[in-house]
Computed example of a mutant assay.
Amino acid sequence: MQGLIQRVKHAKVEVDNQVIGQIEQGILLLLGVEKPDDEQTADKLLHKVSNYRIFNDENDKMNLSLKDIGGELLVVSQFTLAADTKKGMRPSFSSAATPSQANALYEYFVKQAKAQGVRVATGEFGADMQVSSCNDGPVTFNLSV
């Protein structure tokens, strides 16, 4: 499971020119699911996302987590994160989970995040989405478990 996180001042996702998910300060998470992933993998990534210390403290050091600041989380499915780009000029998606497996783990991830008290907004699995954000820093990390 791949999670590309960006520390954002705000972010939103639109489908058919309608805003379907929007957050203020927090994390934009682009979530890629691979074949071997399961609920345990999702739990590990959620722990990392919600506790990763990427927000500045009073001394301007990245020392605070999403939970510490009471930030919001925008979760957007992105199967292209599972691409193999090592060979050739066209990505291979052979390691990506099937749509049904990926959707089930995406939904599970969102449900678990909400259960932990994180304020969550989402994209729409499998939709053609337009995502916009104000990356704060910029600060971006690729998390994998």
Rank of each mutant, 00 (worst) to 15 (best):
S65P: 02
L81R: 01
I69P: 00
L73I: 00
K9L: 15
V139T: 14
S94F: 09
P36M: 12
T122A: 02
K111S: 14
L66I: 10
T85N: 13
I69N: 00
V139D: 09
K48I: 10
K114G: 01
F55P: 00
K86R: 15
G70M: 10
N142Q: 15
S94N: 13
K12P: 08
M62Y: 07
V49T: 06
P138T: 08
R53N: 09
F55Y: 03
I5K: 09
D128H: 13
N56W: 06
N103K: 15
A96E: 02
I23D: 00
T140N: 05
T85M: 13
D37M: 07
L46P: 02
A42G: 08
M62Q: 09
L81T: 02
A102P: 01
P91W: 02
I54N: 00
L64C: 11
I20G: 04
A102M: 02
D43C: 09
Q130G: 05
A102L: 03
Q40L: 08
Q130N: 10
L105A: 03
T140G: 02
Q25T: 14
M62W: 08
E14R: 14
N63G: 07
F55A: 00
T98S: 15
L66M: 10
P91E: 04
V120G: 04
I23Q: 00
K61H: 03
V19R: 10
E58A: 14
V120T: 06
K87W: 15
V110L: 00
L31Y: 08
K114I: 04
V120S: 04
I20W: 06
V19C: 12
E34R: 10
S144L: 14
S132Q: 14
V139Q: 10
D57V: 02
Q40V: 08
T140V: 05
V76D: 06
L30Y: 03
S65F: 03
V131K: 02
V19Q: 10
F125I: 03
V145D: 11
A83S: 07
V19F: 11
L81H: 02
L105N: 01
D136S: 03
G26L: 01
Q6V: 09
N17M: 12
A83W: 00
V145P: 05
A121Q: 12
L81K: 03
V110C: 01
A127Q: 04
Q116T: 05
D84E: 13
E107I: 04
Q116I: 04
M62E: 06
L31D: 07
Q6K: 12
Q101I: 12
V120C: 07
K111T: 13
D16Y: 07
A102W: 01
S132L: 13
I27D: 00
L74A: 11
S92I: 11
L30K: 00
F141K: 06
V33P: 03
S144W: 15
R119I: 15
G32C: 04
V19G: 09
V33E: 04
I5W: 09
N59D: 06
F79K: 05
V33H: 05
L29R: 03
V131A: 04
G3Q: 05
